[in-house]
Computed example of a mutant assay.
Amino acid sequence: MTKRWPALILTAAALLAGCTTPPARPPVASAPAAGTVQWQYVRSTSYEAGQPGLGMSHRYQSKVGWVDVYVYGMKRSDWAAGIADPEFDEHFKAAVEEVRLAGARGVYAKVEVGPVRDELIDGQAFRRVSFRVVHAQSKKTYESFTFLTGRNGRLLKYRMSFVAPAPANLDAIAREFIERNLRSGPDVPKAAHPLLSI
């Protein structure tokens, strides 16, 4: 690991604490059919002023969970597309470590890391990992995914969290959100159109 990664992991983990906090009113899990989940844009947060390179996040919320869409460069603007960048593997491992560190810091009472796999969504190559976490304060269990890719010279990360018991078709719900978000542009939050029928 290069010398800069440990500091970046700690910085990202510090920011992660605010992003892993469930919505004020936790959504109620149900079993919607794919294509029927209504995602509402909630807010955007910029991290650039305090930590250059960490970009922005956009949060969306639904009855089944919430999604944080991160667009950032880690002080680079030349990330290779998809998962091909020479530093991609190292950064993906750091993203997984962020969640483990959140557990070590007490944000989560329990963290289980699932398998890692590569997949293609709407022509974009992603690396994906799943988590099962128990939030320390609420004691609620969440199924979570991280999808990471390089796009337009920057990194694009989706952190998706679903209240357990989660719908059986989480993969379809996650893929549909990402497909729609890629087509509409991850850089632009949908404040003007708050309900995305996904």
Rank of each mutant, 00 (worst) to 15 (best):
Y70E: 00
E119D: 13
V163Y: 02
R132W: 06
S57K: 10
G123R: 06
N169H: 02
F145E: 10
S62M: 10
V71C: 05
R76L: 04
F145W: 14
V116M: 01
T146D: 11
P167K: 03
F126I: 10
V163N: 07
D122N: 15
Y158S: 07
F162I: 10
E97N: 08
S144D: 12
E119Y: 08
K139F: 09
Y158T: 05
V96S: 05
R128M: 12
S144H: 07
L170Q: 07
I121W: 01
L155H: 08
Q137L: 10
G123L: 02
D122M: 09
G65M: 09
I83F: 02
A95N: 12
F88T: 00
H135V: 07
E87R: 09
G55P: 07
F131D: 10
Q61M: 03
E143I: 05
A104R: 15
V111K: 13
F162T: 09
V107R: 13
R159F: 01
Q137P: 01
P167F: 05
R76I: 00
D78F: 09
N169Q: 11
G103A: 09
A172T: 02
K63H: 15
A80R: 14
Y72I: 06
W66N: 04
K75L: 14
W79P: 06
V71M: 04
S77H: 09
G153S: 03
L54H: 04
R59H: 11
S138H: 06
K157T: 00
K75Y: 00
H58R: 04
R117H: 14
V116H: 02
D78W: 07
E143A: 14
A168W: 09
L120D: 12
I83Q: 13
V111R: 13
V71K: 06
K140T: 15
V69K: 05
V163D: 01
Y70V: 06
D68E: 15
W79F: 05
P165Q: 01
G153K: 11
R59S: 14
L156M: 02
A109Q: 15
F88K: 08
V69S: 07
Y70Q: 06
W66C: 09
V129G: 00
L170P: 02
E143K: 08
P167N: 07
A102M: 07
F131V: 00
G65D: 04
F147T: 11
E97V: 01
F88Y: 14
V116R: 01
H135E: 15
Y108I: 02
D78C: 05
K63P: 15
A166G: 03
A102Y: 02
F147N: 14
A166Q: 14
A168F: 14
E112H: 05
S130H: 10
A164W: 09
E143P: 03
S130W: 10
G153Y: 08
D68H: 12
R76C: 00
K75N: 14
R132Y: 01
V129F: 04
